[in-house]
Design a protein around this nucleic acid. Sequence first.
DNA 1: CGCTATTTTGACAGCCGTCAATGAACGTGG
DNA 2: CCACGTTCATTGACGGCTGTCAAAATAGCG
Lengths: 255, 255
Amino acid sequence: MLQGETASANVPGNGVNPLRADLGPCGTCPIRALTAYGVLGGTGIERIARLRKGFRTYRARAVLAREGDVLTEIYTLYEGWVFRFKLLPDGRRQILSFLLPGDTIGFPLVYATPLHFSIQTLTDVTVCVFDARALTDFLASCPAALLGFGERSLRDAMAQDDLMTDLGRRSATARIARLMLDLHRRLRARGIVAGLTMPFPLRQRDIADALGLTPIHVNRVMGTLSKVGVLSLDAGTLTILEPERLERIAMNLGH
Amino acid sequence: MLQGETASANVPGNGVNPLRADLGPCGTCPIRALTAYGVLGGTGIERIARLRKGFRTYRARAVLAREGDVLTEIYTLYEGWVFRFKLLPDGRRQILSFLLPGDTIGFPLVYATPLHFSIQTLTDVTVCVFDARALTDFLASCPAALLGFGERSLRDAMAQDDLMTDLGRRSATARIARLMLDLHRRLRARGIVAGLTMPFPLRQRDIADALGLTPIHVNRVMGTLSKVGVLSLDAGTLTILEPERLERIAMNLGH
DNA sequence: CGCTATTTTGACAGCCGTCAATGAACGTGG
DNA sequence: CCACGTTCATTGACGGCTGTCAAAATAGCG
């Protein structure tokens, strides 16, 4: 149906990916400040550290969870890219969001609700694993942590509203330009990239499914953007050659 | 720029709509079960009742708040329809969601963040008014109420994800059919309508702006749906004549 | 070095947007 | 009660952005 998804043992339920011992203490975690726990002080970190069950690794294009699953674990993305998506009965796919290091995977799980979307990796990925129940209890007892989660949740909602505006009211070119800029901004905010060059593991099909387009049309637009020298994409690396121009294209509301 | 928005004194900041004394005790509120406070028991209701500052009324098409506003009040919609939307610099509009009685307006305000969308009424509206700060404090002290808000928030996110899938991957006809069915379902769940007839205050332009279409195209599709006898729309009243058929049209993924 | 996934290119069509104008509905004021 | 303006619904003509179909070229991978 879709690409990849090789019968790698990355699907929980078959061969669950093994839970590894640990990654190092949370206190020295380089991306902690980026996470929902970033607001926590000294003792909060210790309590979070105690909740952590360990970590897991997944290979690129592995399915982390499927729509309808009721997961008992919540992850914090430690390294790699992940995306949330919905699959329609006929195989169409809508990508809802891309998650980058520091993002929480499975916030809705706090309510033990069946997932209303699926989750898949784009790259090789490492996640920190928390027990959903334990984390929920912790949140109920720690207003600061709850605040962190709430703010994350609000930020997600804001991004979601922006994306909806893209899909409903912007041209294909503007959507693509905005996606590039958004991903670049997020990577910069995380200190993962500094300049105008960034890793870019998305296939054109992924871009299409995120922006409500077809891969062919994405290709046309990307071709144009490359040809006019606004950006270049080679071997999974994207370089924004003319940031201001790209911003102007992204701004462009008409067509 | 947009329709309506007559210089009625419905814009906070100019002539703020007067805060009215009260609507009756929360304990007897007929829509309380529908709200985020629905989960609360006896003493919880009393505490909520004490937080309520009163109520306000707005006329149809009045602007409740604008993008960028930092509001100090949170509303629960008591009666009428409201919608959230974003305005693009050139006047384009994307409606993000429709709110019905029982829905909370301004959940993000818990974080005293500037609103990233605007809010406008569709019909004459009555809202219950809460002080944002007081409500936030209350939530921090009452896990049950917080759970209620979190569940609401999760439900919103789920609806948002569905809508994004609509915009990205479904045809105009399917989107329109799904919007009708969704609104009908929500009104039924609230006991506001029983049969297949419902009030429908949306203009075709509103439908268009919610679904990423043009009013003209909405008209074409609505015309077809009426002509084939699936539904009828007269004087602000929508009747679903053939529910199964409408569902089938909504399901229709193809074109 | 063969297989598969992905990108690229071309031709064509259609859904939906744009432009323009008419008609219906409604409220307002004379 | 009727004239009148505004908003909304409706219709037609036309175009283009984007989708669909098909196939070749390229890249990735074991």
